[in-house]
Every structure is written in C-alpha cells, then in structure tokens.
Design a protein around this nucleic acid. Structure first.
Lengths: 335, 335
DNA sequence: GATTGACACGCAACCGGTTGCATTCCACTC
DNA sequence: GAGTGGAATGCAACCGGTTGCGTGTCAATC
C-alpha cells in the first residue's frame, strides 16, 4: 500500500499463484489457455484471482508475447466533422476483433504527427493514418517497423483506402447542369491534400464534358472561414452555383450568402462534399456522400489482415461516392 | 527478418551493447541518464544506436519502471463539438509534460466506457474522464487502481473540474430581460447530465430573480434534432426567446425557426451554451462560453500533480463562464 | 608511497507475464 | 506386473529494458 496515495500496487500473478497454491504458469494458463488445465483448477484459480482483484498486466503480457492488442488511429484534427464517423467505423470493427483503439490527433502539424506516430508505434500492433500530412518517405519508414494502413493518401506499396469522390462530383456537376447552371465555381481546400486535387480535377473534367464553365477559387484559409470569405469572389465571377471542397467550406459559403441576403437555392446553389453535416444547415446541404464510416471499417479490416499475416502488402481500395440531394441547390435563376 | 512480411524485429538494447562494446546497462544509461556516463561513451553509444536504428522499447521500459508516459482521455463522443477544444487543451499540456495522450470515445454507452477504461487502465499512468456516463461507484473503483480526474462530474474525493455555467447563464437571462423579453424557454439536454441539471436550475433562478417567466421544454432526443423538433412547442408557449442546453441544440432551434421563415433575432431570440460553434451559424450564435479548452488543460495539470505525488486527492476546480454576444438575440418584438 | 574518493562502468536481479519442455501421476493395455 | 501414453502441472528461460550495488581506475592528498 502506497502511503502517499492510498493506492496499492495491483496484485500480480505470483500473488494469485501463492493464494491458490499453484505455479505462476498455471495461473497464466487459467486465463490464456483454460483448455490445458483441469476444469477444477481453472475454476479455483479464477475464483481466487477474482477475490483478490487480479487483472493481468497488459504491459507485461505485451512484452513477452509481442502482441499488444492495440491499434492506433491518427487523424489530422478531431474537430473536423469528417473524422468522427470514420473513427466510429474503425472503432466498431476494432471492438469486434478484440482490439483497443488509440486515437491521436495531430492538429494538422506534420511534426506532431511524427512524434505521435513514433510514440504510438512502440505500443500498438499497427496503425492507421488518415489524410496523413507526413512526407511519403516517413510513412514508408514507419511501415518498416509496424503494419500501416493509410486512408486518403495514395502511397503505393501500402494497403490504402481511398475515397473516390470523382463519381459523386461528376453527378453533382451533372445535377447543376441539368438545373440550367452554365457557370460554376469550385471552392478549393488545402493545397497539399490528395482529396482536394482529386475533387478539383473531377469538377473540371465533368464541367468540360457538360460544356459548362468552371472557375476554381483558391481558399485562403481552412474550411469555414475560407468558404465565408470566398463569397465576394464567387459572386464576382458571375457564377450561379458553387461546389465546395468539403461540407464545412460549403457551410461557410452558405453563411456568407445569408449575410448578403442572397436566398439559397433561389438565387444561388451550393453543393458540399463528404456529407458530414447531415441536415444541420439551413437550407439542408446537398452534398456528395463520402461514406467515411465505411472507410474506417475497411481500413481496420485491412490492418487486421496484415496482422494476421494474410492480406496483400500493396492493396488499393477505392470507395465510390454518390450525390445526396437536399435543399441547397436549385434551378439556375433566370438571367 | 520476418520472411512473411519483410519486417524485421526492432533492434534491442543488447544488439546496441554488442555493437558498441559496452554493457546493456551503459546503453540504457546513455539514453536515460547521460550525466552518469562519460561524454565520449554517450556519443559513441548514441551513434551506434542511431546507425542500427535502435529505438527504446516503451513496453519493456514501462514494465521495469512502472511509468508508461501515457495518459488516457475518454470522452462520450468525439463527434460532439464540445470535446475537441477540450481535447486540444489537454493535448497541449500533455505535450509539455512529455506525456502521450490516448483518446477514447465511448459513444455515450456506459458499457463501452467501462471496457475502454479497463483496457486503458493497464497502459497509462492516469486517466481523465469527461462527462462520464459511468455510475459513481465504478469511477471510484477505477480510481483505486489509477489516478483519475473527472470533468463535468461532481465525484467527491476525486480531483474534478467543473464548468460552472451558472454565472454565464444568469448573464444570458439578464441580457434577454434587458432586451425586453418577458417569457423565455429553456430547451433541455440529456436528463442524466450534470451540466443539464445545473443549467436548468441556473435559468430558473435567474428568471425568478428578474421576474420573468421561464418554461422548460423536455428534449426528446439528442442535440440538433431535439432543438429542431422543439420549435413548434417553443412557439406554442408564446415565448420570445429560447436558451438551449448547448450550441448544437441551439443550432437546431435556429434551423427550425428558419424553416418557418421566422427571422432571428428580429422575431425570436436564441442563445446557446458552450461556444463551440463560433460564428459558423447564421445568424452567428450568442452563447455562453464554456472555456472547454481550459477545462482540458486544467484536468491535465491536476492529473500531473497526482502523478507527481503532490496535489490533493479531493479537489474541486470550478471554471467560470461568461456571455458571448453575437447576433442571435435581439430586442423582444413588440407584442 | 599508501590512502582516499570521485568517476565510469559492469553485474545481476527485477518488472509480470508466457511458453517449451520436463516431470508426475494415473488409467489402460498386453 | 511392467510398459505406454496422455493429461495436468511445474520449472526455468525469456521478452527488453532499468537500477542498486560492487569493482576497477586514476588523480589528488597526506
């Protein structure tokens, strides 16, 4: 008993062994391989263990077996609503497989991500990196030490899951074109982001195919504010609709328009991407669903395969997307 | 080298010792107590270690020292915007103190929280439980094993930080009263929540003091939808303003009002609580700031004190709040 | 020149589990 | 009654670090 804190050291396997009159090996097996022991012994050991409050020490177990039972999931920013569904998906799968999920948030800073990964690497069996901001060679270096699965980052040679918004974006452009829009803008996201590049190209391609004009506007900062501040520029282009890099940016656009008393969708149409806001905006946001939850599930399945020794090293899972029509896009206003 | 995966076992302290021609103890000390060794030895050992890619094994270290260098932070739901600022605050402090923060999300389910805490308990030095949904005796039981700090839960005997919204709420009621509102509603949050009870009482007390009428409306579900669905009931009371349990609920109210083309704040005023949405709504939400980031910082500081052996076991930190005026509340409409 | 003490380093035990192998016991077969 | 095989359990090494204590070296002191 620690005098200072009143907290006593947890009972160890040896104490249980003494109390039950068996060897430490037997206690260990009573928990890990009960089939090896006589039913009576198992019951007796467990009873004693329960009585004195013994809980196997995970750390010691990990040291001798090399298996920690933990998986780390690192995201750039927990505050970004894109990630929680993904986290939840991964967590559900981790539960099923008996793994404990450790979450880390890097605040979009590569250095923080680096230290986070390094610290986690020693305590988990594998890691999932979401929208990693790390240089590719660093990711590869870590992958030498531990199995790694990446999400939304196309690192060849590693298992990766990519959300392919191209199809959904194309549907969004078609939708706008069908509604009579002839000039649209794309409000850009982080320049370094794989998703942003992919989305921007998708908008451009689809617009060209439909013969409508597309103007890309650089985002000066992150997300919401970027969207809000882009509104004057958007309007200056003479466009009648905007597709935003993500839902949060789209929400910014929505607010910027509301501030100028421009009714949506009557006078201007807005489409987001990711479908993370649900119907919490006004008007409810028409958006491209990214199925983030499935991305999380899939990443965990891939990692599990790696850990089990089965599963390919170089596998590229692409998740398709579709347009979710709500109320923020409508017919182009008469000129 | 593992034939299957191409991944080799990490170099151990023994390999470094052999390569550098010193004992394992010396290698260990070269990293943990360089002052004990001659500068030349330290340099040589580190050089060799770096060359063969040695990284101290955290698990082994934790086993022998009992110090893991990890802290767990468990929240009910990462998707709730209340938590990210708190997480960030805690993380910043953890960095400073050299701890690695493990995050867990319990999805509001006590059983999940229970297993999460149990799994984490063996691998961290201490835990922070935010808005825990666990029965008090369970929290106490875990606190026997590891230092625990709780946030927004008044468990006597444990270090706890409480966000006291009473003052801010009172200011909000005063503000509304000053603007001429005579009947207001409070849109309730989760019944089991400590914060909800506290806020509800605060509204009632302040309303009585100012001699205005206060009507509490039960929330049928969580947050956003609760707010949106409460709008008809709110309007039926004849009230001219609403204070919502939290910002997300307030956002729901805002959307519900917008759907009915009721302009805010011209015809109805809305005030939220927590200040987690910033100015991302339209109109920007007037709200009671909860200083969640500071709560996270403070909790980590308290935990650190516990771990260092200093610090009281039974300490109750109360964070004050204040009203943040934006644009969602205005003068009461003329009757 | 013997004594002393600081310094640098090695030895070996220890943290709390797991596990290959040896041992004991017993029922069963020939 | 000796031989055999399987079931139940113990022994002891091992996982990869940390650390108290002991030893050897060398310069300073008397």
């Amino acid at each position: 008993m620690d005098e200072e804190t009143g907290r006593r050291g947890a009972p160890t396997i040896s104490e249980v062994a003494d109390a039950a009159g068996v060897s430490r090996a037997t206690v260990s097996r009573a928990f890990t391989r009960p089939g090896m022991l006589s039913p009576g012994t198992v019951a007796r050991v467990r009873e004693v263990a329960g009585r004195i409050g013994y809980v196997p020490n995970q750390v010691a177990r990990a040291l001798s077996t090399g298996r920690h039972g933990n998986i780390a999931l690192i995201v750039p920013d927990v505050a970004n609503p894109f990630f929680p569904p993904l986290i939840r998906g991964a967590q559900a799968r981790a539960d099923l497989a008996g793994y404990c999920l450790f979450l880390g948030s890097s605040d979009e800073a590569p250095e923080r991500e680096e230290t986070l990964v390094a610290k986690f690497a020693g305590q988990v069996e594998g890691l999932i990196l979401v929208s990693s901001r790390l240089p590719e060679e660093r990711i590869r270096a870590f992958a030498e030490r531990r199995p790694i699965v990446v999400i939304n980052r196309d690192v060849s040679g590693l298992p990766r899951v990519l959300i392919d918004t191209a199809r959904g974006i194309a549907a969004a452009v078609d939708y706008l074109a069908d509604l009579g829009h002839r000039r649209i803008t794309y409000v850009t996201g982080p320049a370094a982001s794989w998703s942003n590049q992919q989305r921007r190209h998708a908008v451009r391609r689809a617009a060209r195919r439909r013969g409508i004009e597309m103007i890309a506007l650089p985002a000066h900062r992150a997300s919401f504010e970027a969207g809000r501040e882009a509104v004057p520029e958007i309007l200056a282009t003479g466009a009648t609709a905007a597709i935003a890099f993500d839902d949060v940016t789209a929400q910014g656009v929505l607010v910027g328009l509301a501030e100028r008393r421009i009714p949506v969708p009557e006078r201007f149409s807005v489409i987001g991407c990711d479908d993370v806001l649900g119907a919490t905006t006004f008007p409810p946001l028409t958006t491209v669903s990214a199925r983030c939850d499935e991305a999380g599930e899939m990443a965990l399945d891939l990692l599990e395969d790696q850990l089990a020794g089965r599963g390919l090293r170089d596998i590229r899972c692409v998740l398709d997307t579709r347009l979710v029509v709500r109320g923020s896009a409508g017919p182009a206003p008469a000129a």
